[in-house]
Design a binder for these strands. Structure first.
Ligand SMILES: [Zn+2]
Ligand SMILES: [Zn+2]
Ligand SMILES: [Zn+2]
Ligand SMILES: [Zn+2]
Lengths: 132, 132
DNA sequence: TGCGTTTTTGACAATCATTATCGTTGCCAC
DNA sequence: GTGGCAACGATAATGATTGTCAAAAACGCA
């Protein structure tokens, strides 16, 4: 018994949020995305934006970043495990993969007897187009 | 002229917070530390605990961790740049150094033209004493 | 196409860590 | 000593995120 339906329904709001994420370049907050939707004339509640983003994040369809002292930022990324190189001025983001880092983290954790290992890694800097 | 005094005054409250951090083993939140101080009979305001922790963090004397969906956690660490391997059950923390990771991050950033590079890295797992 | 069931929505209230206020306290250089 | 100025702290404010719950909308099925 039990699992009968994934029961994920197709709604106008969910599509709107997902579509918007498809067009956005960098990371954006829930509040930002909500404001953009409103300007487009899309009628979507803030609560729904939060819920949708959370769902997409849980499903691994979008990435979440928690910058120091700010709101959560969301972005549609390419598939597979990767990390972000972010401009701390304009937010321009580059996806970077580092197999060596991945294995290093797992190895270090194993050496100390830690199991079920995961990690977070973000690189910050000022991008070429943001002199000064 | 200019720099005359660091102007950092010695106060009973600052000493209390700093001393407490010296005895604590893992990471603790501002609210936790404040509660501990009160139980000891130390009379320190919550605002002051926040301010002191922030100051110590800015001065690089303590490390801050921002676990997903929780408060900021503080801990007195050894000197020098390092990262943390944290048990997501009990909080037991091991400091780890990874020169290879440091250079990798800098190299990747440089390749993309990013300057003034910094990074954040945390490894999570369940420690040996937290079976299951 | 109409219906019932179940999910989703969204306006609004609630949470809660952190920050801002601002009058009082007390450190410390002189 | 004492005056100036940093630090304190009770309290209010902030603000992102989450909880609530009645109403709206999907969708499987007839
Ligand atoms: Zn930039
Ligand atoms: Zn990784
Ligand atoms: Zn543990
Ligand atoms: Zn590092």
């Amino acid at each position: 018994m039990s699992e009968s339906s994934a029961a994920v329904r197709n709604t106008r709001q969910r599509s709107a949020v997902s579509a918007l994420l498809g067009e956005m370049e960098g990371f954006h907050s829930a509040q930002d995305l909500h404001a953009m939707l409103r300007q487009r004339g899309e009628r979507v509640g803030l609560t729904t934006v939060y819920r949708t983003l959370q769902g997409l994040a849980d499903a691994g369809e979008i990435d979440v970043m928690r910058p120091p002292g700010g709101e959560h930022l969301y972005r549609r990324c390419s598939e597979g495990h990767h990390h972000h190189l972010v401009c701390r001025v304009c937010g321009r983001t580059v996806e970077v993969a580092g197999p060596a880092v991945e294995s290093w983290a797992d190895r270090v954790a194993a050496q100390h007897g830690y199991a079920d290992v995961s990690h977070t890694l973000e690189i910050f800097g000022t991008c070429p187009t943001c002199p000064r």
